[in-house]
Simulated scan of single mutants.
Amino acid sequence: MQNFPTSLVRLKLNGRNSGVVSFAKAEEEDMCGSSSFLLPSTLTRLHIIDFMELESLSEGLQHLTCLQHLGIWSCPKLDLPETRLPSLSSLSVCGASPELKKKCTSRKGKYWPIISQIPCLCLDFY
């Protein structure tokens, strides 16, 4: 279990060779293993980079009520949260899977209704 300071507002995580598959839900804090960890609820800016095994952010970001900026780079297995984080004012996604690209870029895509409401949106797919 990773212990971050409770006052932390900016965090850049590089997951190269980490094996992390998900971020923990707040209520799972005491049960987290080495493949999951809890992010501090005080974060306003989060960058997630090179998490090759990370699959989902849905559960792990729901308690981040102050999060304004989310950047995701080179996380090929990652899927976006199922619901929009109300405080999010910018989202940057680069180097995601072709499946995620389809879900985000098509007006009929699964995530378009969620991400199209974010004021600053940068989608750059390989």
Rank of each mutant, 00 (worst) to 15 (best):
M1K: 08
M1G: 12
M1Y: 08
F4V: 07
F4D: 02
F4Y: 15
P5W: 01
S7F: 13
L8A: 11
L8I: 13
V9C: 06
V9A: 05
V9T: 12
R10D: 10
L13S: 08
N14G: 06
G15R: 08
G15L: 08
N17S: 14
S18V: 07
S18Y: 02
G19Q: 02
V20L: 07
V21S: 05
F23H: 01
A24Q: 09
K25M: 08
K25P: 00
E28D: 14
E28H: 11
E29Q: 12
M31I: 12
M31K: 15
S35R: 12
S35Q: 15
L38T: 07
P40T: 04
P40V: 04
S41T: 05
S41W: 06
L43M: 01
R45Q: 13
R45V: 04
H47L: 10
I48T: 00
I49T: 06
D50E: 15
D50T: 12
F51T: 05
M52E: 14
E55I: 02
S56L: 05
L57G: 02
S58P: 03
E59W: 09
E59P: 00
L61C: 09
Q62S: 11
Q62W: 02
L64G: 10
L67V: 10
Q68F: 02
Q68S: 12
C75D: 01
P76M: 07
P76G: 09
P76L: 07
K77T: 05
D79Q: 15
L80G: 03
P81E: 02
R84D: 07
R84V: 09
L88E: 10
S89F: 02
S89T: 15
S90P: 00
S90C: 00
S92T: 09
S92G: 03
C94T: 14
G95I: 05
A96P: 11
S97G: 10
S97D: 11
P98M: 04
L100E: 05
L100I: 11
K102I: 06
C104N: 14
S106F: 02
R107V: 13
K108M: 11
W112F: 15
P113A: 08
I114K: 04
I114A: 07
I114E: 08
I115E: 03
S116M: 05
S116C: 11
I118S: 07
L121W: 05
L123M: 06
L123E: 09
F125C: 10
Y126T: 10
Y126R: 09
